[in-house]
Design a binder for these strands. Structure first.
Lengths: 255, 255
DNA sequence: ATATTTTTAAACATCTGATATTTAAAATAT
DNA sequence: ATATTTTAAATATCAGATGTTTAAAAATAT
């Protein structure tokens, strides 16, 4: 008998709500319930399942937390099957990374693997309209070199735009998520004016290479930019420092 | 006034439970609540917040769905702050990818960016014990070339082991998640014996290169393996086919 | 007829309070 | 000491009442 332990999940809960969550999620993932479908009202479905309203409500809440349902109040309201959106996933990753607390190096490493390749593809597919968008993004950024909060959004939007041009939903998800997580790290650091100028400059060079439709040049500029950002972030905190659970920066005393 | 819309999130709900979720999640993410901390009992906290038990219960349920809390019944039970685990994230991604329904190409592309680089690092850090583990994994796999279900787990474990050697939590998360998502696609296809043999063969060559501590060779073998798997999967479904919402394979009529 | 306002009903949101079940610890018996 | 039983704290579930939201229907005014 080959490792039975690997086949079955350990049963830990017999909660009614979990059972219902499992059934409804299963129905969605099997395609029996489609986007926009309206589930029965709490009262009706509770009756049908033979459980109390509260148990059913909890199930609906969990499914809503998963991003699988949208629950609307009022007449012709109810629970509707919904496409899971990126925000749900990103929020989950923020929660995950909070405890994982990856180093700047860890974030940078994955970026150096993906984004230089992404921009290569991008150089071959990019349109003039896309280039205008990116150029506009940079000018907006230059106007805002003092407002870090706006910068973060523009920085995200820049990298998001580039990755979206590849039309690969998996890569988009990953790049955007890493970007979001990194922004959260940046927020903790006090980025100075020089850093923000450096970011703008890097973006300009990338767009320059993209305008020339030069994949290799774009790739090199992207790699340089990512490394520069890492260096800048590390410099923003003299010595090795880590983000602690209290959100305060303190020296990394090693593990 | 620079684009106010970008600063504030649109307020959509005034639900009590959501407010509580927001507060508790915030306290965790600010580090005011740490792993293992026990929150007050439902009754007590409901009193403290001045809300009903049911509203508080819903909040606890949602936080549990996020993976931030573990709720235990019985004496000295209650709600405990918990590190978000990988399963929570993976399940979320399964939900997300179900609707996104990426093509095999999209999965393969990201793999070709990451895993050949990962295995390079791996070649420099791998220990003899790690190699034994990988070799053992392959022999297990060879024993099971007929039991596809077991194969999937072993296949995942193989790639997981390699990525874990890099000691980069961000990359591990991504590789494992893509792997899991891909396994779900594979499950829908009827993988034949030849395919499974090919996987084993690819793994053997990768481990061979790793044993020699040859990063470039390992990288090339990994890339070859990934492309072979893609080709094999595409071959498993004559013509271009997609995973539909009903879980059935049908010809991709293009978009 | 058209536009505005009011009413209405369906559905979720919240509250109250009771009962059942689970579980670890404390008490008891062996 | 060990095994068993009891107990108490906490969640799980249920039932039913009341409040709030919301879109559609009805009534009203223009």
């Amino acid at each position: 008998m080959y490792g039975m332990k690997d086949i079955f999940d350990t049963v830990k809960s017999n909660r009614i709500s979990e059972n219902i969550v499992h059934q409804i999620r299963g129905a969605i993932l099997r395609g029996e319930l489609k986007i926009g479908d309206r589930l029965p009202s709490e009262k009706d479905l509770a009756m049908k399942f033979g459980v109390s309203k509260s148990s059913l409500r909890e199930a609906y809440r969990v499914l809503e937390a998963y991003g699988l349902l949208e629950i609307k109040q009022g007449m012709s309201g109810g629970a509707f099957v919904k496409k899971v959106d990126l925000k749900t996933i990103k929020d989950g990753l923020v929660n995950y990374f909070f405890f994982q607390n990856p180093s700047i190096r860890e974030y940078t490493q994955i970026r150096t693997f993906i984004e230089p390749e992404v921009v290569k593809i991008c150089a071959l597919k990019i349109t003039d309209k896309d280039i205008d968008y990116l150029k506009n993004n940079i000018s907006e950024m230059e106007k805002e070199v003092d407002g870090e909060k706006f910068m973060s959004d523009l920085d995200c939007a820049f990298h998001k735009k580039i990755v979206d041009i590849t039309e690969n939903t998996v890569i988009s998800l990953i790049v955007e998520s890493v970007q979001t997580a990194l922004i959260n790290v940046k927020r903790m650091l006090q980025m100075n004016h020089a850093f923000l100028m450096m970011v703008c400059d890097g973006h300009k060079k990338i767009v320059g290479a993209l305008s020339e439709r030069d994949p290799d040049k774009a790739s090199k500029e992207m790699l340089k930019h990512i490394i520069e950002v890492e260096t800048g972030m590390l410099a923003c905190k003299n010595g090795d420092m880590v983000l602690t659970e209290t959100g305060i920066l303190k020296p990394d005393t090693g593990s």
